[in-house]
Simulated scan of single mutants.
Amino acid sequence: MQTGPQVKTGFLRTGHSNGVVTITIDRPERKNAMTQAMWREMAALFADIAEDASVRVVVLAGAGEDFCAGADITEFDTARGSTDNARSYEADNSATFAAIRNCPVPTIAAIRGICFGGGFGMAAACDLRVSSSTALFSVPAARLGLAYPVDAMADIVNALGPQMAKYLAFSAARLDARSALDAGFLLEIVEPGGLSLRTAELARTIADNAPLSILASKASIRASLSGDRDDASHAIVLGNRTFESTDYLEGRSAFREKRPPAFTGR
């Protein structure tokens, strides 16, 4: 596994350490609001990750005190000022949500502070969500006169359940961390100072497990949610690969020898 320094391009910062990639939205002075260029860059980052066999887990976080305030409203008059521009912007949003959703390895959103709009959409597209007790959640499209992309709304429904998704979309209300946990949106809540440590522990636990098994499990869960035959066929292929892998042999050997397994993803 590679370990390297963090790299910043634009307002996104990435680091890769022992199979765990961390992507940090680094625009704290704007509560990590996303510009159109940032949406495109985020999608490209996840596309690259999907092709990198050394990556086992992705953590998505925000710099400073917030996760992400969503789209940068200061761009709306230009980037979303006309019907054509608004559709182009939505396509970039959808591409980012899809890239996160379709990432083959597990994704974890580490959420503190504001998680609104497109930031909420990115968190909903992740597999797991851990937040600090300071987190606030909102889907404010109804106060902006906009509609969310259908695929993003599907993520929100899957993560929250249909009734809570309707409530947030219709009311534009704010949800605190405890309410988000009770709705099933969050895996757990930690105190503000412990978010980074807890997220790192969770990522490390996942990264130390058998990568091919996790790829197959994620694909199977996706197939069960989508009901799509192609998704099911893909999950079956990935599941069959595990039976032929050296990791399967290693898992059995480690169990017999009462030692931690050392999986290689082969």
Rank of each mutant, 00 (worst) to 15 (best):
64 G>R: 01
144 L>D: 10
149 P>W: 03
114 I>C: 14
61 A>T: 13
92 D>A: 15
105 V>E: 07
183 A>V: 02
99 A>Q: 08
86 A>S: 13
164 M>W: 05
178 R>P: 00
140 P>R: 10
83 T>E: 15
81 G>L: 05
119 G>E: 07
143 R>H: 11
93 N>W: 06
94 S>C: 05
189 I>Q: 00
98 A>F: 04
199 T>L: 06
143 R>A: 15
190 V>S: 09
128 L>F: 12
66 D>R: 02
70 G>Q: 14
181 L>I: 00
140 P>G: 15
87 R>N: 14
118 G>H: 11
175 L>M: 15
70 G>P: 03
193 G>I: 01
59 V>L: 12
144 L>C: 11
112 R>V: 00
187 L>N: 07
67 F>G: 07
199 T>H: 02
110 A>C: 03
81 G>S: 04
187 L>K: 06
94 S>D: 12
143 R>L: 13
174 R>S: 06
108 I>C: 05
171 S>M: 10
133 S>D: 13
162 P>L: 11
90 E>Y: 12
101 R>W: 05
83 T>R: 13
68 C>R: 04
95 A>W: 01
96 T>G: 10
132 S>L: 01
134 T>M: 09
149 P>T: 10
126 C>Y: 02
97 F>V: 13
138 S>D: 09
182 D>N: 09
107 T>V: 10
165 A>G: 09
78 T>H: 08
121 G>Q: 10
158 N>L: 12
170 F>N: 14
